[in-house]
Design a protein around this nucleic acid. Structure first.
Length: 376
RNA sequence: GGUGGAGUUGAGCAGUGGCCGCUCCGGAGACUGUAAAUCUCCCCUCUUACGAGACCGUUGGUUCGAAUCCAACCUCCACCA
């Protein structure tokens, strides 16, 4: 059987890779940025927008979707793709991050995590069996294992415990996905390597998970409050110990420069709420850094967010108009800037792919980052 | 002309003797596997900050102390002549 991940090119000067990941709902050209659609919607956008800006794969979330409307309902409605009107690939997060972000509402045990619903306080439980069952109901193309994402900073002992539990849960997720036929049907299951800032634990997690032969590997527990150099160090401490012929994914990252720096470290996939969340708060990305469209200086600015960028927002609307929408509290502002921001990220990784193929990714990405950071 | 009501540093309001409050509007910041179309700070003057000083229509008075009590006056609103 042909591999589901093909390496098409490798950059000579950096660790950057150009690849192609095949899924039940089509191919994904890597490196790729994946817009986040936690609750079965990339907030403020329709699938038509997503197609137009070049989205190839989006995210959904096990925890949120199972809470509401429940994975059984989505299964009965024909699966998540049909339910939300998106026919491209979907990666679903396991809810492992909610173990971290909703930490006040949960209790971690050896078999899984007891949660209190953030919606109504109801008790629920997520373990390997639960998250794999939910993701099967959703019809996920790429299911993530459930993991424990330790906070930053964390004691070595606590981190070791989280790694140990995450490994055990990953193993169990793989077994369940195999027994249920989920893998045989062509769905993928990705593992998540933890280890916080401890290089030896990062390496150990990567090697142990590699031995279990997953479809892909994620670096987890990054960008949970640590400074950027520390974050990049954690990624660099993990990727060398992941198999070359499997896709690599840093979860929850990052800013445009961070994405380029991680592509150089050999990462293939990214997801981040940053572009979509900040868009709804009036922040727009440009090659010279991000700008806050609510600022008075844009009151009468006739220019688009980025001159010449080929997306609906930049083709049609001035900064002055977008500022007006935000100052007036009009919802269209969030939609138009989300279109721009996500297109900006997708265009960035498209450029990265082209430069890896052309063989000049190293110099190109350094120049891009320098210009962006100079503008900030 | 009479009677009643009202004047609070951009707007709308709260404030019955000592703590100057709230909501808008306006200015800025934050946001990284989404409990976020959210949150935080500022929004009379001076000060880098710590702070200091104004100001509750006007003028005078009572009082240790007044947006608050008293008097006169001014402006606006309603009704009556």
């Amino acid at each position: 059987m042909a591999s589901h991940f093909q390496l098409l090119a490798k950059d000579a000067a950096t660790g950057a890779r150009r690849g192609r990941l095949s899924t039940l709902h089509g191919n994904v050209e890597t490196p790729i940025f994946m817009p986040v659609g936690t609750q079965g919607t990339v907030k403020a956008l329709t699938p038509v927008h997503l197609k137009e800006i070049g989205a190839q794969i989006i995210l959904g979330n096990t925890y949120h979707l199972n809470l509401r409307p429940t994975s059984e309902l989505i299964r009965d409605m024909g699966g998540l793709h049909k339910f939300m009107g998106w026919d491209g690939p979907i990666l679903t997060d396991s809810g492992g991050f909610q173990v971290f972000s909703l930490s006040k509402l949960r209790e971690i045990g050896d078999h899984g995590v007891s949660f209190q619903s953030h919606l109504d306080g109801a008790k629920l439980f997520l373990g390997p069996k639960e998250v794999m069952g939910i993701q099967r109901n959703l019809g996920s193309d790429i299911a993530m294992v459930i993991d424990e994402c330790p906070p930053w900073p964390v004691e070595r002992d606590a981190c070791a415990l989280a790694c140990e539990r995450s490994l055990r849960w990953a193993k169990r997720c793989k077994e369940i996905a195999t027994e249920s036929g989920f893998l045989a049907e062509g769905h993928h299951v990705f593992a998540i390597a933890q280890g916080s800032t401890f290089d030896d634990m990062r390496r150990q997690a990567a090697e142990e998970l590699t031995a279990l032969d997953f479809s892909g590997y994620a670096v987890g527990g990054v960008s949970v409050g640590e400074p950027e150099p520390e974050m990049l160090k954690q990624v660099a401490a993990t990727t060398p110990f992941l198999p070359e012929h499997k896709p690599r994914y840093t979860m929850g990252l990052g800013t445009p420069p961070q994405i380029l720096k991680m592509i150089a470290l050999g990462v293939d996939m990214f997801d981040c709420v940053l572009p979509s969340r900040v868009a709804r708060n009036g922040l727009a990305f440009t090659p010279d850094g991000a700008i806050n469209l609510r600022n008075e200086r844009f009151k009468a600015d006739p220019a688009p967010i980025v001159e010449g960028l080929d997306n609906y927002t930049c083709r049609n609307f001035s900064r002055a108009y977008l500022r007006h929408l935000f100052m007036s509290g009009e919802m269209l502002g969030g939609t138009l800037v989300t279109i721009h921001n996500l297109h900006f990220f997708l265009d960035l990784v498209a450029q990265a792919r082209a430069h890896i193929e052309a063989g000049d990714f190293g110099t190109w990405h350094r120049g891009w980052v320098a210009r962006y950071e100079a503008g900030q």
